[in-house]
Amino acid sequence: MPRPTGFAYDTTRDGTVHITHAGRPATTLRSARAARFLTEVTTDDPQLVMARWTGNYKRGNERTARDHPRNRR
Rank of each mutant, 00 (worst) to 15 (best):
M1K: 05
P2R: 08
P2N: 09
R3T: 04
R3N: 12
P4T: 08
T5H: 09
A8R: 11
Y9E: 14
Y9K: 11
Y9G: 02
D10N: 11
T11L: 12
T11F: 03
T12F: 12
D14E: 13
D14Y: 08
D14C: 07
G15I: 00
G15P: 00
G15V: 01
T16I: 12
T16A: 09
T16W: 02
H18G: 11
H18D: 11
I19N: 04
I19F: 05
T20A: 15
T20M: 02
T20L: 06
T20V: 01
T20Y: 06
H21W: 14
H21F: 07
H21D: 10
H21N: 13
A22L: 05
A22H: 08
A22V: 12
A22G: 12
G23V: 00
G23Q: 02
G23K: 02
R24H: 06
R24A: 10
P25G: 13
A26P: 04
A26L: 00
A26D: 00
T27Y: 10
T27A: 14
T28P: 05
L29E: 06
L29P: 01
R30M: 06
R30W: 06
S31G: 08
S31W: 10
S31R: 04
A32D: 10
A32N: 12
A34Q: 02
A34H: 01
A34S: 15
A35K: 08
R36S: 07
F37L: 08
F37K: 03
F37V: 03
F37W: 01
L38I: 07
T39V: 11
T39Q: 11
V41K: 00
T42K: 05
T42R: 11
T42L: 12
T43G: 11
D45L: 10
D45S: 14
D45V: 03
P46G: 01
Q47T: 08
L48T: 04
L48S: 10
L48W: 04
V49Y: 04
V49D: 00
M50D: 01
M50I: 06
A51I: 05
A51T: 10
A51V: 15
A51K: 08
A51D: 08
R52D: 07
W53G: 15
T54M: 07
G55C: 09
G55M: 07
N56G: 15
N56D: 04
N56Y: 09
Y57Q: 09
Y57E: 15
K58F: 05
K58T: 07
G60A: 12
G60F: 06
G60L: 06
G60D: 08
N61D: 13
N61A: 02
N61M: 06
E62C: 03
R63V: 09
R63P: 11
R63S: 09
T64E: 04
R66T: 10
R66H: 07
R66C: 04
R66E: 14
D67N: 15
H68L: 09
H68N: 14
R70L: 08
R70T: 15
R73T: 07
R73L: 05
